[in-house]
Each structure stands twice: as structure tokens, then as C-alpha cells.
Design a protein around this nucleic acid. Structure first.
Lengths: 241, 241
DNA sequence: CGGCTAGTTGAAGACACTCAACGAGCGTGG
DNA sequence: CCACGCTCGTTGAGTGTCTTCAACTAGCCG
């Protein structure tokens, strides 16, 4: 499946509930229009820290392009990756004045940083942020089910499904008739990061990938690309359907 | 520890990050003031369903008194309890028009149901809801760490700490000097519900309670009451500090 | 080529789950 | 009043999944 095919997939997105960080392609349709220019645009390279847990919260951030992961650490070093965010998502909201998570980029990323005071003064920004918070809460609910109740295999299958635009969600478009039900996605995370996202160890993640590969469900492409041979089949392995 | 002692504990709450559903005592200081009367007040008995996953979302709900749990089911019956909510908390927000979780009361509960249209027309309500969403997102972040990275023992310890007002959070007041560092809490959940909240089985939860009891960390009182003998000690068992 | 990082795979062990039996508490009905 | 049934909780024994520890490979860059 070519890159073009993937981009045209993106064009017919049913939006809302997709993973937005998948390919890091800006979906302007979902960005607040016009993007409020009271904020500063900031560029970050891959794997740069935007803020750490405990930092004083100065701004709220809107992703224009790229991908950001939010994580938390326990004192002994255990890490949980909480959320993966993409264009249109916001982060950095807090009630306490300090950030409750670490925010780090997964790829080159542009964000708009809005001063908290500017947000307080802008009903339009507040509404935009409130809308995004609703979808994030929904995503966190789903992730709680994954972390609390799914097997390793189901977690990995769910993770992969989240990378495929328009599939697996409530607005799943289903397999295109008469065509192979396959998809190619970029996985810009290491095994360790996937493990920390899914509440597993990197070895368990690796074994789950290997097993799916052995079964012909997926194959590896160049770099960090993975081709899923049977999207509907994978979807059934998630435990959600 | 008497009931009076517990209520006076409640009076010196540092708010914000406490479990708000602990004892079901309304903390008026945290309710929107005045409570917007565009909403209908509805009373529910213990363990009544307010809405189910998939239901059309008509209203957004504010808890005046009582406790509500949000849960999700997988097709094969596995359940994850996502959030436990109390007075001042809101629920029922969604981007999709349908609820993504089940909402059920844990005790006799009064809620205000705001029509979604009424919310859209009321900036004051929207701001109140946005504020509550921020603290819920923070709680969901913490819960993701629990579900993804903590041992059974740590999960149960964390659960119990969440029931103790003013302790364990970032604004922990510490043990009162010169006094026993104990606390009595009501646990209005069955072992199965606690298990579904913590991502465990009911047997594992029961064993963790039994072990803590054997070690003298807690003892059972009447009905659903549990006395923690050493709050700071329990806090160290959570893995978070 | 050597050193580094990321990923894979194997073997052994731990922790939580499953299955099962039993007991406590609390209504109902004889 | 006590027997009965029901739910909820506890405890034990055995199992399984995931983790831990370790060795080894592939790719990348100096």
C-alpha cells in the first residue's frame, strides 16, 4: 500500500475519535479556525521535553503538527505513557498550577503555546479546549479498559488499530468491498515506549508482534512501518468487538 | 475514631484532588454557587442506572449529593470501573452524542441534569464543567498509572488512600503531631466493584485486604467501615511516594 | 571493524487468575 | 425460633500469563 493510498485514507476521516498522532499529518479541518494568534508558535525536534511533571504550568498547548506523548513516572522509575496526541489536540491543562505529567515530542512538532491568562480571557479558546477535553476523557476511558482488563495480545491489537485512520472506532467504515483489507502505518515508538503505553514489558510487546507476524496478520516494512494484512481480523483480536 | 472526628476531617479539606465520593457528604463550598436552576434535580436510590453506554446523550449531570460510578463493559462481560465521582463532580459529557460509559449510583444520590442545549447557552456552566474536566483528566492520568504499572498490593493501598480526605495527595497535611495517624473510612463498594475499579479479580482484592489486616495496617468496623491504623505507612505502600 | 542501540527469543520464576470450598450475615418463610 | 437460601467475603490449591534475566542478532554510525 503506497503512501498516496494512506493520505487518501486520511482525506475521508470520520474524525473525532481517531488517533490524531498517527502520521503527524496536519488535518487543518480540525484546527481551530482561525488559529488564535495570541499564542506563541514553538517548534520542537524529536524527543524533546516540553514540560515535566511538577513544572509550573504557564501555558496550554495546541498541537499544529507532529505528535506528543504524556507520561508519568513512579519514584522507582516505572513509567506509564498516558496519552498519545496529534494535530488538533491540546495538553497542559491543570487545576493545580503545576503539570501532572511529562510532555515529550515523538517527532518534529509545532505547537501553539497559549498563556493561561490569555485562555482565561478568551471564551473561544476555552470552548475549543473544552471540546478537546471531552474527546480526551473518552480516550482515557477506553485506555482504562485496555490497561485494566485486556490481555497482552488484545492490547497490542488495540494499539495497532488506533493507528489506522477511520477503522475500529464507532464510525468504522469497514473493509472496502472487493479489495484486500490491509493498511500500512508508521509506528514512531520504540518497543519500550509501546510497552509503557500498554502497561506491559518490552519483551511481551515484542512477543505479541512476533506472534502476529508469524500468523500472517502483519509484516514489517521499511523503517518503522508495519503493514496489517487483515484489518478486520486484527480488530477482532482487540477484544472490543 | 468517631463519626464526628471524620466530619471535622472533612471540614479542613484542601479540596481539588480528593476523592469526592468518599462519604457522600455534600461539600457546598465546591458546588457551583448558585447552582444553576436551568437544570432538573433528580433523585436516585442506591445502585440505580442513570444512563448506559450507547444511550443518546441528552444531559450533563452534576452531583449534589451521593456517589456515582462510571464503567465500561467488553462484549464478553469483562467490566472496568473507570471513575468514582462525588458531590461537585460532573459526568455525561461526550463529543459523539452518545454516552461512552455506564453511569450508576453507589448510594442514594441527587444530581442536577442540565440539558445539553442549556449548557451550550450558558458560559458559566461551560466554565464550571471545564474546570471539573481538568481535575477528572488528572484523576484519569493517575488511574492509568495504577492500572498500567502498580502491583495488586499497591493498587489496594492507593484505593484506600483515595478514601481518606486530605491525605496522600499533593497537598497532604501529614500525620497530626502527637496523635495516632489513623483514619476510618466507609467503603461503599463490593469486592467485585473494587476489583473492577483496580483491574484485578475479587479474590486478589480480598487477599490484599486480608494481608493488610494481618499486618495490622487496617481493621474492619461495622458495616462497610475500615479503620487504617497508620495512614502514612499505608501511603508508602501505594508506590507513589 | 567495533561499539552502540533496538529488537528478538529462550528459560525460569513470580504474581495474579481460576476454580473450588467454606463461612458470615441477612433476609424470608415455615 | 430456627432452617433455608442467597449474597458477599475469605481462603486454599493449582494453573497460566506475563515478567525477569539473559543471550544473541540486526542495523547504524563513527
Amino acid at each position: 500500500m503506497s503512501l498516496d493510498a494512506r493520505i487518501s485514507d486520511l482525506d475521508r476521516i470520520p474524525p473525532k475519535h481517531d488517533a490524531r498522532w498517527t502520521l503527524g499529518i496536519t488535518r487543518d479541518a480540525h484546527l481551530p479556525d482561525p488559529v488564535d494568534r495570541t499564542g506563541r508558535t514553538v517548534e520542537h525536534d524529536t524527543r524533546e521535553t516540553i514540560f515535566d511533571e511538577g513544572d509550573r504550568a504557564r501555558s496550554i498547548y495546541l498541537i499544529l503538527e507532529g505528535a506528543v506523548m504524556l507520561s508519568k513516572l513512579l519514584p522507582d522509575g516505572r513509567r506509564q505513557i498516558i496519552e498519545l496526541l496529534g494535530p488538533g489536540d491540546v495538553f497542559g491543562m491543570t487545576m493545580t498550577g503545576t503539570h501532572d505529567v511529562n510532555a515529550e515530542t515523538l517527532r518534529p512538532t509545532r505547537v501553539v503555546a497559549y498563556d493561561r491568562k490569555a485562555v482565561d480571557a478568551s471564551p473561544a479558546l476555552q470552548i475549543m479546549i473544552a471540546e478537546r477535553m471531552k474527546t480526551q476523557i473518552c480516550a482515557l476511558h477506553d485506555h482504562a479498559v485496555l490497561l485494566g482488563r485486556k490481555s497482552a495480545r488484545e492490547r497490542v491489537a488495540t494499539f495497532l488499530m488506533r493507528l489506522i485512520p477511520g477503522r475500529g472506532g464507532m464510525g468504522c467504515i469497514g473493509a472496502s468491498r472487493g479489495r484486500q483489507d490491509c493498511a500500512t502505518v508508521a509506528v514512531p515508538l520504540t518497543r519500550q515506549e509501546i510497552a509503557d503505553y500498554l502497561g506491559l514489558t518490552l519483551e511481551t510487546v515484542s512477543r505479541a508482534f512476533s506472534q502476529l507476524k508469524r500468523e500472517g496478520m502483519l509484516s514489517y516494512g521499511k523503517h518503522d512501518e508495519v503493514t496489517i494484512a487483515n484489518v478486520c481480523g486484527l480488530c477482532h483480536l482487540t477484544g472490543s468487538h
